[in-house]
Amino acid sequence: MNNHEIDFKIYGDDMQFVEVELDPQETVVAEAGSLMMMEDQIKMETIFGDGSRNSDGGMMGKLFGAGKRLLTGESLFMTAFTNEGRDKRHASFASPYPGKIIPLDLSELGGKVICQKDAFLAAAKGVSIGIEFQRKIGTGFFGGEGFIMQKLEGDGMTFVHAGGTIHKKELAPGEILRVDTGCLVAMTGGVDYNIEFVKGVKTALFGGEGLFFATLKGPGTVWVQSLPFSRLASRVFAAAPQNGGSSEEGSVAKGLFNLFNDK
């Protein structure tokens, strides 16, 4: 295998975290800020790019790997956790919002998975984290979630996170599934992905589901989330009091502020 072979265990239900077991000299790479806890003798190192073999070809290779991540809206840096002890050690990584963590064994999924640009959480060292451009220009301008997605390649374990309940669906050859663009979490490399316009002016303007949705054509596997973080954030923002809100809301907020700032 080109990737480090790691073991793991997922804890929790709606606020999950994944515990990765590292043998001596094994490494897991994670998004900056996703660490929950780790045992001693684990070395924590900030790296350019994704730590894969493709990014080890000198400074230019590392800069290219980091640049790919910058295009997806992520940080230039990732964090590598290496067990430098003689015994097994554990490191845990948590989701940034309520939902599920999906373990993906790339060796069983054709060596390639495409996911939303903010779905990646952690992976065994050696997994290549790149970008996937959609073939049709309309996808980029009208897809809602943008035409750049993350591409995970290799033969190791990787972990992605999503909001709400996760539904895994197997698509037969030629089978078509239409999904809200924000609800699409990940798909295997063989799935054909496109953006389709919602026909009918009334549906587009008053349907509440936006103007476009993703059309997925099998064969392959698709993971769908019931509550995208963008949808949750928009509902919270819409429900928040504007310009101070009502007098009752203001008095409650003022009371809480005084409670936590009482000296």
Results as ranks from 00 to 15, higher is better:
M157V: 04
I102Y: 10
S251G: 00
G146P: 07
M36I: 06
K88F: 06
R178V: 14
V127R: 00
N194H: 12
G12E: 12
L121S: 09
A124W: 04
A32P: 00
E21S: 11
I102G: 10
M15Q: 14
F257R: 15
K125F: 03
L109K: 03
S55T: 14
L227D: 12
A186K: 06
G65C: 03
P228G: 06
N2K: 14
N3H: 07
G65Y: 03
A124D: 02
K136N: 15
A186G: 07
G99L: 07
Q116D: 15
V20G: 03
G164Y: 08
S247R: 11
G146V: 07
K125I: 04
A124Y: 01
D180R: 02
S251L: 12
E39I: 02
G140V: 12
G146R: 03
F48V: 06
D40G: 07
S52I: 08
R178D: 15
L211W: 08
Q116T: 11
F206I: 06
L211I: 14
G61C: 04
E31D: 12
K202Q: 11
Q225I: 06
G33A: 05
G190W: 05
G218T: 03
L232K: 14
F142W: 08
M36N: 13
S226D: 10
R135S: 15
A204S: 13
W223E: 05
A162F: 03
A94Y: 10
M1K: 13
C115P: 05
I114G: 01
D180A: 07
K117N: 15
K43T: 14
M15I: 15
G190V: 08
P98V: 11
G244A: 10
T215P: 07
F260G: 10
I148S: 07
S246H: 00
D180P: 05
A91L: 05
M149Q: 14
N3F: 01
S226K: 09
L256R: 11
D40V: 00
G218L: 06
G12I: 12
P219E: 02
F81V: 01
S95E: 11
F147E: 12
A80Y: 04
I114S: 01
I10E: 11
A91M: 06
V160G: 02
M78P: 01
V198Y: 02
A172D: 12
E145N: 10
T158K: 00
N83M: 00
A240N: 04
